[in-house]
Design a protein around this nucleic acid. Structure first.
Lengths: 151, 151
DNA sequence: CTCAATGCAAAACCTTTGCATGGCG
DNA sequence: CGCCATGCAAAGGTTTTGCATTGAG
């Protein structure tokens, strides 16, 4: 079943609008991978044809601030969004740009100490493995340099 | 001393122009941290006032393709460039957006196997630790949410 | 009712691109 | 001298913003 985010929204003094719920539903449908703002606008318009891109962008930012979403960025394909569920990292396909969640996390007290030894106050971290998914592997072998070093 | 990149450029059938050398010199000056295209344009204009932004962008892309530069991306501050010296990762300051190199690398055969077990052909990886550098720590404590969840 | 959220359109960014000119090899 | 690289300006793509209107609480 679809969890409702109404309570989280309201507890932040945030109104529950059809647009907001729709965005959260769309991201819930694709829990396994991330989406760009543009993809979200596209899917949202299937159900609510005149939802404005401005509204989607504004809501993505709002929902990130509330901590309901996470925003990822990586060379070559703009920002990606996902529901902020359990902590995880991603496999990023350099072909189709899809991000798929993985459970492995490299962060531990040792690494943290290393960073803090240089006066750095650690808040978060990010780990991504880049490569080619099963579907894109064939194409990748043909032209390994297609991506112009923008790995 | 400044290493000259002339040979690398020439060996790729690439002309050595003042603009190209200047960009490489600027990035060599800041080996410890990365720079945005815009910062590079600014510094370049101090020495060559009418260098065009288009030229800088074109060269940054060219030099990435040649493998002389590395391009990094991260939420909240666009692309960053650095000389492609030894493999390393970064501490990213959420205050001043500075990226500082660290030596620790989480990648090993175990992690690689994990990714490849799901049919993924691993090509590269990226690890960054986000937080606040010594200079920005005070400010961070005052307003932890300034960055709108865009960690 | 009130104030936040929306739709629309314009603007603000950042990056790329077309074209004529200049300069490296 | 030929062709790549440059400067300039225009265009492209993405994200933000201003403003009047709508609608959730």
């Amino acid at each position: 079943m679809l969890p409702s985010y109404d309570k989280e929204l309201q507890s932040h003094g945030c109104k529950v609008t059809p647009q907001r719920s729709l965005i959260l539903d769309i991201l819930h449908e694709s829990l396994a991978h991330t989406m760009t703002a543009d993809e979200i606008v596209g899917l949202a318009r299937e159900q609510q044809p005149n939802i404005s891109a401005g509204t989607v962008y504004r809501n993505l930012n709002t929902l990130c601030e509330l901590g309901l979403l996470k925003c990822l960025d990586s060379v070559g394909d703009g920002r990606h969004y996902e529901l902020n569920t359990g902590h995880h990292h991603h496999l990023v396909c350099l072909g189709c740009r899809q991000r798929v969640a993985i459970d492995f996390c490299p962060m531990n007290s040792e690494v943290r100490d290393l960073a803090e030894k240089s006066g750095f106050a650690v808040e978060d971290h990010n780990f991504e493995i880049k490569g080619y998914c099963t579907k894109c592997r064939a194409g990748a072998k043909r032209s390994p340099d297609t991506n112009g070093g923008m790995i």
